[in-house]
Write a protein that binds this DNA or RNA. Sequence first.
DNA 1: GTTCTAGAAC
DNA 2: GTTCTAGAAC
Length: 758
Amino acid sequence: MDCVAVDDNGGAASRWMKRMARHRESKSVVVILMGAPGSGKSTFCDNVMRSSSRSWVRICQDTVGNGKAGTKAQCLASASSALKDGKSVFIDRCNINREQRADFVNLHSSHVDVHAVVLDLPAKLCISRSVKRSGHEGNLQGGKAAAVVNQMLQKKELPKLSEGFSRITFCQNESDVQAAVTTYSELDPLCTLPSGCFGQKNPDSKFQLGIMKFLKKMLLVVRDMIQVSQDSVGNQVTKEKTPINKLAEQAPASSSNTGKKVEDDQEMGSFFDTNLLDSVPTLAFPSISTADFQFNLEKASDIIVEKVAEYVEKLGNARLVLVDLSNGSKILSLVRSKAAQKNIDSSKFFTFVGDITRLYSQGDLRCNVIVNAANWRLKPGGGGVNAAIFRAAGPTLEIATKERAESLAPGQAVVVPLPSSSRLSEGVTHVIHVLGPNMNPQRPNCLNKDYTNGCMVLREAYSSLFEGFASILRSREKLSKEKGEEPGLKLSTLQDRLERGPVDQISDSNQKVKREGVYASEISKKYKGSQDEPGSSITNFRGGKDKADGKTKGWGSWAQALYQIAMHPERNKNDVIEVSDDVVVMGDLYPKAQKHLLVLARAEGLDRLADVRKEHLQLLSRMHAVGLKWVEKFLAENESLVFRLGYHSEPSMRQLHLHVISQDFDSNHLKNKKHWNSFNSVFFRDSVDVMEEIREHGKAKIKDEGILSMELRCNRCRSARPNIPRLKSHVSSCQAPFPATLLQNRRLVFAPTKDGLS
DNA sequence: GTTCTAGAAC
DNA sequence: GTTCTAGAAC
């Protein structure tokens, strides 16, 4: 152990080395530098190389490709070739985590020692250095640097001897760095350095506390600056899809007009960007089902990486963070290495060790949305993440959750806006509860190691929660647009209006949060689809698919939404505009015309038109009557509309539903032949005809789906059009009367004429 | 049901 | 080169 003490003093170490050298043969050394941009890696190399008697080669990934940025493979090749020539090598790249440096550690041999020098300097310093420097090889300078440094530090994994290093030197300040420079400068060709770890002050510290605190202090300054920059760039900023990055780019440019301070103080750029980084939408989620539900870790990690890869691009600049409480978490390391293999953008997805309810206060990681691995009852307790989140958030979370959903089926997620009264004040705005598949026989709905089903459900769970997050982001964006823009978004659909709510409520901040949550839940609901009765067997999870009756076609999980709404309108208050014992009325989520409602039958087992029999006649006529009532209301508002009520022969969505649709077909959601023909061919069965057929023959005629691919014809003049855009453009101006068949038997419903005829 | 995208059609 | 469709995935 003597050598450790001696080594703290560079000079003494070198005397020791020289003494040892007499007994050792010459060895090359690979020094893997580690540190964020701006930590001084290149300077370290330069300083050593300037005065060393060894022959060093510095391999920098930013220049390894003929002076330009190259690949890791190129770095490795250059390193091998330098070692063959008997030279020693500096690997000058960030090497911030184990995976990044593993290949370089493998360069070790009987003739080559591999060392690590960790430049673990304050982030503050790294940021200000990288912001200030110009002409950096990696083109990492200016405002962008702050973000990159912060990202890197979050991924930092300090090296361990077990990775294969013979020696690790930690430097946490400038004098440590200077001592290390001296040590390596004086390492002559015949010497070796003693093995072991040197200079590590706090082995477990993943983060340098204080850095973020420093940055937080700057928050107020930054806030003022953002105000300045927003004033100068006006609406442009708020309209950008990713204001975070754009703002940083625009701020300096705009400063020539107004923001003198921004331009002058380059270092401010870093705070600026850092604050923005803080506001990058971030979702923290635990690994679903792998703790108490005992899901296989290998399979679970594959699914996490697969789903993250799928969503990380869709989510724009948002970040996804897999969180685990324990440092040695197997799932984290599995996911990390698989994510690295898949080349997932590590600034958008990374893992994090910490308490998911204290990510900001303890880990300096700001997350707007956290995911709860909930139980099916959505109740507190049970231990693990669920207990922790409910405990941290207090009873208001439970109440808010109850308002959204009574329970969850495996694979489902529900987005709950965190009430402002909640105790949880970590910058979290939403909690997404998700229920994963269970492999633990001690818990409900155990799948008994049925991993075919299990993996499916776990995928669904991640899709649901990422969709939930996506919908939060979308409604956020929508909100900021609403604030800036004239409501040019016309309230063309009832759905729109329902989502919007009265205008006076929009200005209320609580209402905003509520609306976000609502919107989110709509989207994820569509996605998650099925929700069986609480506690029901998981084999029914996919609705019709696993049903015993062989005739039922498989309903995809997305096709269950209407069924759920019909059976539990109280859970779907935001979709539903009318509820009674036998029907539920809602706006079509993707209206194909100016007005487009659905009247759902509230009868179990009545999935589609083909299921309808004589005993349902009363229900059909009730659905028709309710539909007509709404038509009347719409016609009173706009007498130029014309309505048609009917069923799709083969619906895509489970649960008998009557379409009430205006005949303008003026909607951006009408996009393809199937959409058009499902309302404008014999595939669409008029409600009046259906009732007559049932009355007379006991069942309704059903047309084959094949009809949907037939030619496109105008619903008025019946002329054929080559494609959807041309058809829509024609339909928007066609004044021809409707075909005679539609005018008969009250298939079309018009506004009453003034003379009383209709 | 929608979204995404390859490749056909123009 | 762009527009549009159709099929797969969800």
